[in-house]
């Protein structure tokens, strides 16, 4: 069924050469299907290969083996149909917030009139709460505001898939909660298929429809999938009080602990062999 396999990742492999020139498969046999409009979280220990999977889906990182299909077409290279928000906002510093968003909009909506493009840019900036700071340069914006511009830039392109790689990683917890709600608001309205890479267990439960937990690398793949069965739009305070919430939390944490234990076991074995 097409709707269920809007994004299809099959047998995805990424091999990096180690310092001696041998290939190490960092990600090996990663398989995942994403439904249309779904928000899927990617969770795992640091260094397991989450960013690698996400950048391969974005097309910024070459695929060693396997493939990715988006909307019935296999991807090759990056494109504006899969827009990315990175951990650092990486805005173009010589452009204003408006200019940064406009750069992509001009490119994607080639046939729109100037006025239409302006409306799109202004709308996306006001959605993330930057209506008053549109014409500021990135050096004049705080880190949180810069990240908002990054989000506005991504959603203004009306992408098929939105890729978020720890978009709140560098923000303080208040700003982080703020931005979580901003993104959820947009996604509830626009129903964009989204992949969210995160470290934060609570964040993943609050934001995602499904959480994909990766095993530790090398040879990382999908370890466990959890459906988060809460209605949208979600209310943070209600969720936190719900017993299911703690159930999910428990499941995720125990999986992560298992991974950690396994890692230690392997390390001990290696030490013995040595």
């Amino acid at each position: 069924m097409h709707e269920d396999k809007y994004v299809e990742i099959f047998n995805l492999v990424k091999a990096y050469p180690n310092p001696y020139g041998d290939d190490i498969k960092v990600v090996d046999g990663f398989e995942l299907n994403i439904k249309k409009g779904e928000i899927i979280g990617l969770l795992g220990h640091s260094g397991c290969g989450k960013s690698t999977v996400l950048t391969m889906l974005a097309g910024l990182n070459e695929i060693s083996d396997g493939g990715i299909i988006v909307d019935s077409r296999e991807i090759s290279g990056p494109g504006p149909d899969r827009s990315v928000v990175f951990q650092s906002p990486c805005l173009l510093p010589w452009l204003t917030a408006y200019g940064n968003v406009m750069l992509g909009v001009e490119r994607v909506f080639k046939h729109a009139t100037k006025a239409q493009r302006k409306v799109i840019v202004e709308y996306s900036l006001s959605v993330v709460g930057l209506a008053d700071s549109m014409h500021k340069y990135s050096r004049e914006l705080s880190g949180g505001m810069q990240q908002r511009v990054g989000i506005a830039r991504a959603i203004a392109l009306k992408p098929k898939v939105l890729l978020l790689d720890e978009p709140f990683g560098r923000l303080d917890s208040l700003t982080r909660m703020d931005l979580q709600d901003v993104i959820l608001g947009i996604l509830d309205r626009e129903k964009i298929t989204t992949m969210l890479v995160t470290h934060d267990v609570d964040e993943s439960i609050y934001m995602c429809d499904r959480i994909c937990m990766m095993t530790n690398g090398p040879h990382a793949k999908v370890g466990k999938l959890i459906d988060v069965d809460f209605q949208r739009p979600r209310v943070r305070s209600e969720m936190i009080e719900h017993p299911k919430y703690y159930d999910y939390r428990e499941q995720i944490l125990s999986f992560l602990d298992e991974c950690e234990l396994e890692k230690e076991k392997i390390a001990k074995q290696k030490a013995k062999v040595a």
Binding site: G59, L60, P80, S83, L92, W94, G104, R107
Partner: peptide, 28 residues
């Protein structure tokens, strides 16, 4: 900056617009 190149890649900018909008301003 590699991030700026990535922006150009995601937007699939052509050679000239990449040059004029990304490369030249950043080297200015």
């Amino acid at each position: 900056d590699k991030d700026h190149i990535n922006v150009a890649r995601v937007l699939r900018l052509g050679f000239w617009s990449r040059l004029i909008k990304i490369v030249i301003p950043s080297s200015l």
